[in-house]
């Protein structure tokens, strides 16, 4: 594993820790899209089916279990915790899951490496992850007040896939030039979706102002 991949994983983990910290410490999930969080649960469930069929490393297995456990607990807090659920911006979080999930599933049926259940679901999870942030970005745009933890959460979540892009370039040149179009292009789309957010996040940070996205 190279340093870019590790930095990507750690950024991803840190983003989730920040989100859980926000929810647990402030007993609030304002500004967080339940739609996006539920999509991440689907992403992890469909991608990590190989937990049962193949062993890669202790690191890999542990991280997969952590991502599954934390994403499920975030959804649990937002749906069922009696204080947290009252802070959920339900009226603003209106993006429909199936607008994203169904096209991604159809695309995975058409474009994949191998027509097996595990491989098609893995491919689906890659496509879905690329667009799963959209409900969150829409909600941020509708929020007049984006708190620091939420802003940092989304920033780190976007930075993680950008670091994976560098990791893929590095792996291409250091590991027998293996071409993997599905994750590469999906990862590129995923990172591009954050471009606008990155711009305003960095601008607000440089000017020491509160983060706000133009409507």
């Amino acid at each position: 594993m190279n340093v870019f991949r590790l930095a990507g994983d750690m950024t991803h983990l840190l983003s989730i820790i920040i989100l859980l910290l926000k929810i647990r410490a402030t007993k609030s999930c304002t500004g967080i899209s339940l739609k996006t969080q539920e999509l991440y649960v689907i992403v992890f469930l469909t991608r990590y089916l190989d937990l049962f069929t193949k062993y890669i490393s202790f690191y890999n297995t542990t991280m997969k279990l952590v991502f599954l456990g934390t994403s499920i607990s975030i959804v649990w807090y937002m749906r069922y915790h009696k204080v947290v659920k009252q802070t959920y911006n339900k009226d603003q979080d209106t993006f429909r899951h199936y607008f994203l999930a169904i096209p991604c599933f159809l695309l995975a049926l058409l474009i994949h490496h191998e027509f097996t259940v595990i491989e098609v679901l893995w491919t689906f999870s890659i496509y879905l992850e690329a667009v799963a942030i959209l409900p969150q970005l829409v909600l941020l745009q509708r929020s007049r007040n984006i708190d620091n933890l939420t802003g940092n959460y989304v920033f780190l979540l976007g930075a993680y896939r950008a670091l994976y892009l560098v990791n893929w370039v590095y792996r291409y040149f250091t590991e027998n030039h293996l071409v993997r179009w599905i994750p590469w292009l999906s990862g590129l789309v995923q990172t591009t979706l954050y471009a606008d957010f990155f711009y305003y996040y960095i601008k607000s940070w440089k000017n020491n102002e509160k983060l706000q996205l133009p409507a």
Binding site: R5, R47, K64, H113, E114, R180
Partner: peptide
Amino acid sequence: SSGVPKHDEL
């Protein structure tokens, strides 16, 4: 690129 890539990433 030959065969199915092993998914060793997260």
